[in-house]
Design a protein around this nucleic acid. Sequence first.
DNA 1: CTGATTTGACCTAT
DNA 2: ATAGGTCAAATCAG
Length: 235
Amino acid sequence: MGADPGRQELAEQMVRCIDRALDAVRGGVGVGVEKKRRRSAHEPVARLPAQYKRRAICPGPGVTVARVVSPTMDDGFAWRKYGEKSMNQPRCRRFYFRCTYRDEHGCSAKKQVQQMQDGPSLFETTYLGKHTPACPRDTLVAVANCAFVPQVPFLASFRPGAAGGYTCLENMAPSFLAEEMALMPPNLAEFSGKYWPAEDRQIKFVSADPTFPSPARELESFDDSLEELVSLLWS
DNA sequence: CTGATTTGACCTAT
DNA sequence: ATAGGTCAAATCAG
């Protein structure tokens, strides 16, 4: 088919984004700045029995579950990491978080974040439960469908930028990756070209809440969707 | 000092 | 027995 220069450029932007993400992951793991923690052989601890809750990944009724993929683990909420597991595949780990304000506000929200084994450096996050209204957050997020992983909503996270507008958070993993940020332009053209290429310009919904289970309303056109996203980010 | 993270042990479901 | 989820002492970081 005809080579549309605009589409070509959007595709190249996507490729550059993916390459950058992969480089960040590989470089971060391989580089020898790794902190060596030495841990004195600790004595076996006498533990109180019966303090363990049942398996929580199958939540009971009433507990909301949401799944997203994102290049960042940062969704603006304060999380406290309480566990990490290595899966069978190398470089494929799963992280366990609970809300920092569990005790202060009685918030029972949790999330599990897993590195995706194929594709660019994306994380798949499963949210279990919703935050208390008292739980603070410091970013805006947009949730939409994406060409990268069509089956799972894509979450983009933004913080107010120094030069105005918003900064998109990317490639943020705990401890082994540096924070990499790209300044958001005042319009969304560049961003939408990066994550929503011309071949898949169908934003299904946007939201300020990553844990919401279903779209508030279906959006008709790509332009309407962008308008909604803009209103969320720059309202 | 205080709160967050790391990390192996430990628990439950399959 | 194994996999998945959680605990908590040791350690790190502001």
